[in-house]
Design a protein around this nucleic acid. Structure first.
Lengths: 155, 155
DNA sequence: TACTTTATAATAATAATTATCATATAGTAA
DNA sequence: TTACTATATGATAATTATTATTATAAAGTA
């Protein structure tokens, strides 16, 4: 398996510590983080990094095909898994999970079609299910201000 | 078939000319218009209507289940067809079409599931394919500033 | 017609994302 | 190593879609 630095170099990126940190923050994160979340994570190592740099870096990575930029409830989220797949988005706590199981294969198959019968050329796809995650469905109480704020989607 | 006024009344809405105009602007429009587009259309009859009123009206209609609020490429679009279905979004001209054919049934079936095997409760879903519509695929030239601006998605 | 409630429209606010630009750093070649 | 050039970074400001606030107007009802 290629390491992060080699992957970036292969795509023609200059290797900067900030870039590596942003890339690794997404690759090592299964929560489909927002740019803001990546910013928070990367600042632990690079306190002076700017949010703008995070946005631009993520944007350039997505253009290079190194990660997937998702539109979830009108916000950008990032996914190290670039294979098209479906997501489950909890409207209560904001958590975003992959849809797994047999159903999931369906969507990668759809992407493979490349083009519909009518001649629409498919470049990318988003398949998002919104609702309540198992945990939020169980505790049907208000979690209050101490609840999961970081992952919560805007109202 | 129930008329617009009766439908609104049934949902507890007061009947105002603005509301009727907004409702009909969406029902009689297969282009999945944005709030801005609805605003432009409704202003022909009600030049003094405010964009804010259009936003709030559309929001309340979607909460009442009278129409579907779509997240297309991070913008809100509205659809008089409230049955869950998939969309084809041209990234070049911004046009949004329904995906028709056998594939389409798949997505309404998915919605009918209501819950995944893992216990995630599905309230709504978005299935969006991005790419080039047949027309844009054919004319692979720059349409320039006189091209389809109204429907074009933000960069 | 008067009354109460809700809707409208003008205006301001918000929040996510993007643009600008001076400074700093990576990659490269002497 | 050093100098050089292109690109990246970070500070700041701008943009854009959407939402909040609030005084006035209109809808529904008695």
């Amino acid at each position: 398996m290629m390491n992060a630095s080699a992957l970036l170099k292969e795509k023609g990126f200059r290797i900067t510590p900030q870039r590596l940190a942003v890339f690794e923050a997404v690759l090592g994160n299964k929560t489909h983080p927002s740019a803001e979340s990546v910013y928070t994570a990367v600042r632990e190592k690079f306190p002076s990094i700017s949010l703008n740099t995070v946005y631009k870096t993520l944007q350039s990575f997505q253009e290079a095909g190194l990660l997937w930029q998702l539109n979830i409830a009108r916000n950008l989220r990032y996914d190290g898994n670039t294979l098209p797949h479906a997501h489950l988005c909890c409207l209560r706590c904001g958590q975003v999970d992959d849809l797994n199981g047999g159903l999931a294969k369906l969507f990668t198959d759809l992407a493979d079609l490349g083009m519909t019968k009518s001649g629409f050329k498919i470049d990318s796809l988003e398949v998002n299910f919104y609702g309540s995650c198992p945990s939020c469905s169980r505790h049907a109480v208000n979690l209050g201000p101490s609840g999961p704020g970081d992952n919560r989607l805007p109202e």
